[in-house]
């Protein structure tokens, strides 16, 4: 090694995230990783694997399943669990509906996105998780820009944005009362670009949905959505076949697709560098109001 002790932004962010993950392992009894099958939770899982190597991944993966999935997401999830010899726990929104815990939204823009909150909180309580590690980033959304890395949730699972604990230096405070829990966000300081650059640098295998593919889609409010069987089309909407890719992966009902011919990670990085719309710009759930994300987060959302 030379005398130049520079550290690249990716290495610094990586070291910071690993430090946070190790703090979680020490400060909590029963952590889990919120795994959605999207790139951010994949990167967090990969970082956790690195943080404890050569020990086994010390956290189970928790997937909140809306039932409205891309099949590719589930295949990727199961393969990753096998590869890491990890434990998988699935919280099912369908089950919450069947048990009468939540009521399905109706209408064309019905989404199970909001319902996930109840399933998430129920699952956290059932397994007595005292912390859920998430892949949320501060650059995604303006409410998230103000959230702490160690983010406290009261006994109702609520976030209180006006009274957050001060967070200074790298001194994270995970103290809490019985019944409360934390959400911890190790990649808070990463941007969408950082995530893709890191995936490229580390050559992490990604779900095929992120790369260009041919798909039946339809347009709604200026967004392309996947025409899967459970999507209800308005009479004016018609199915077309297009070359698309996902920029974010979530519940199918609110995941906007991008017209894209990006085949490789390099293509994706170039595409993001040139793009003029944020990744959440494709998310119908954020468009409901100016403070939609804050309101959902207060209620216990991811």
């Amino acid at each position: 090694m030379g005398q130049d002790y520079k550290i690249t932004h990716l290495k610094e962010l990586e070291s910071e995230a690993i430090y946070i993950l190790r703090e979680v392992a020490e400060q909590f009894q029963n952590p889990c990783i919120l795994f959605s099958g999207g790139k951010d939770s994949i990167v967090v899982t990969y970082l956790a694997y690195k943080a404890f190597y050569p020990s086994k991944l010390p956290f189970p993966l928790l997937h909140i399943d809306t039932g409205h999935n891309f099949q590719e997401t589930l295949d990727y999830r199961d393969e990753l669990v096998k590869k890491l010899n990890a434990r998988l726990i699935v919280g099912s929104v369908q089950q919450s509906i069947d048990e009468g815990r939540v009521k399905e939204e109706t209408g064309y823009s019905a989404s199970r996105n909001k319902l996930q909150t109840v399933t998430l909180l129920d699952t956290i309580e059932k397994y007595k998780f005292d912390v859920a590690i998430g892949g949320a980033r501060r650059d995604e959304e303006k409410a998230r820009a103000k959230e702490r890395i160690f983010s406290h949730r009261d006994e109702f699972g609520q976030w209180n944005p006006k009274n957050q604990r001060p967070e200074l230096w790298n001194l994270f405070n995970g103290h809490k009362n019985e019944g409360e829990h934390f959400r911890v966000f190790p990649i808070s300081n990463w941007t969408e670009m950082d995530v893709w650059q890191y995936i490229y640098q580390e050559q992490i295998a990604m779900p095929s949905l992120y790369f260009t593919h041919t798909r039946d889609v339809f347009q709604r409010d200026g967004q392309w959505l996947a025409a899967l069987p459970f999507m209800k089309l308005k009479p004016t909407e018609k199915v077309e076949t297009r070359q698309v890719r996902c920029r974010t992966i979530g519940d199918v009902t609110c995941t906007g697709l991008t017209l894209s011919t990006a085949h490789t990670l390099e293509d994706i990085i170039d595409e993001i560098a040139a793009t003029r719309i944020t990744e959440r710009g494709g998310r119908a759930d954020d468009k409901r109001s100016e403070t939609a994300m804050e309101d959902r987060k207060k209620a216990g959302y991811f």
């Binding site: 501060r138 300081n189 670009m193």
Partner: peptide, 26 residues
């Protein structure tokens, strides 16, 4: 100013973290 209370009152309440990059630095 991202939080509801901030937008309503027109003031900044809390530390916000912002990110940008140029070809030279993040």
């Amino acid at each position: 100013d991202g939080l509801r209370a901030e937008r309503e009152q027109g003031i900044t309440i809390d530390v916000a973290y912002r990110y940008f990059a140029t070809p030279k630095r993040k």
